[in-house]
């Protein structure tokens, strides 16, 4: 994830500094940046901080960054727990720093176009929404460690939960089911989350971490009283090639193929930069990042308890 973010920062002309406890020389070299030997050195050198560390480290890193008076862009999910997320918001507020969760899907032009159409009322009132996302099971072990990442629901489905909220508003009820297959030795898991929004609209979010070789794909189908919108990354690619040389090795399956559209990580970086410099509101607020975490946690609880979870109204998250 750090590489996707670093490439975006490089593209918009930022001067890059890196820190990782295990060393960051390789990444720093690739992006012409400077490796820092400590967090303190990083904060001394950089004006803005982009946290790409595993989820359990978000709180402590965000704390030290805002204490060093740095604005923070933080990879999603904002935090492993709602309690940690609330602390991050409290710390950012106390130090008057920007805390922006990197819900990059909001910057994918397909989703942005759909959101604009919804906002413009072209589809009328939202009724039934479906979101899907598939990818290969991430290779770094912390992703598949529930204690660390929150698993498929908190790490992957949080994207589509956020989309459902972005399109159809706050949620009243969360239900989820999950299947982690331990059969045939192949690693594959899938989860379905059904959200009933306060407006009455219903959303289905389907996540999937598949075996090695699973292609990354995503899409949505949105139905409102005045019309529908559909997108599937496996279609509408604009470029298809067939070759007689057999199947070509694909990308790692964990990150999307950005195809021929504007790099969403770059748009996200610009939005963060502008918010940090001018005080404008970024596309995703810290509250919205926390809300997505809370809904994902409710989904995890629903899986554990085999029942629908009513989500308390904790103020306006729209």
């Amino acid at each position: 994830m750090a590489r996707a973010h670093a490439a975006a920062w490089e593209a918009i002309g930022a001067e890059l500094y890196f820190y990782a406890p295990s060393g960051s020389a390789a990444v720093a070299d690739d992006f012409g940046g400077t490796e820092c030997s400590s967090l303190a050195a990083l904060y001394a050198a950089a004006e803005l901080v982009d946290i790409c560390a595993p989820t359990p480290h978000h709180l402590n890193l965000a704390r030290s960054a805002v204490e060093a008076h740095r604005h923070v862009l933080c990879e999603k999910p904002l935090s492993r727990s709602a309690t940690e997320g609330r602390q991050m918001l409290a710390l950012a507020a106390a130090h008057r720093r920007l805390l922006m969760p990197a819900h990059v899907v909001r910057y994918f032009p397909q989703y942005a176009a759909a959101h604009q159409a919804v906002e413009d009322g072209r589809l009328g009132a939202m009724a039934v929404l479906r979101f899907h996302r598939s990818g290969a099971t991430p290779q770094r072990p912390w992703f598949t460690d529930d204690n660390a990442s929150g698993g498929l629901i908190l790490d992957q489905l949080v994207h589509d939960i956020d989309q459902a909220v972005w399109m159809a508003g706050p949620v009243a009820t969360v239900y989820a089911s999950e299947n982690r297959s331990e059969r045939s030795g192949a690693q594959a898991q899938t989860a379905h989350v059904i959200l009933t929004h306060r407006s009455g609209a219903v959303s289905h979010c389907r996540g999937h971490w598949g075996a090695e070789g699973t292609a990354f794909s995503f899409g949505f189908d949105i139905a409102g009283t005045l019309g529908t919108l559909t997108y599937d990354s496996r279609k509408n690619t604009g470029f298809e090639m067939s070759t007689t040389r057999g199947a070509s090795p694909t990308e790692d399956g964990f990150m999307p193929d950005l195809g021929y559209f504007t790099n969403p990580y770059e748009v996200q970086a610009r939005d963060f930069l502008q918010a940090a410099q001018t005080g404008s509101s970024p596309r995703t607020s810290a509250e919205e990042g926390l809300y997505a975490v809370q809904l994902a946690l409710a989904a995890i609880r629903s899986v554990a308890e085999h029942r629908a979870i009513d989500v308390d109204d904790e103020g306006d998250h729209s």
Partner: peptide, 12 residues
């Protein structure tokens, strides 16, 4: 913990 996380008692 899970009740707090999912907002059942509001803000702690």
């Amino acid at each position: 913990h899970s009740h707090i996380e999912t907002g059942e008692i509001g803000t702690v």
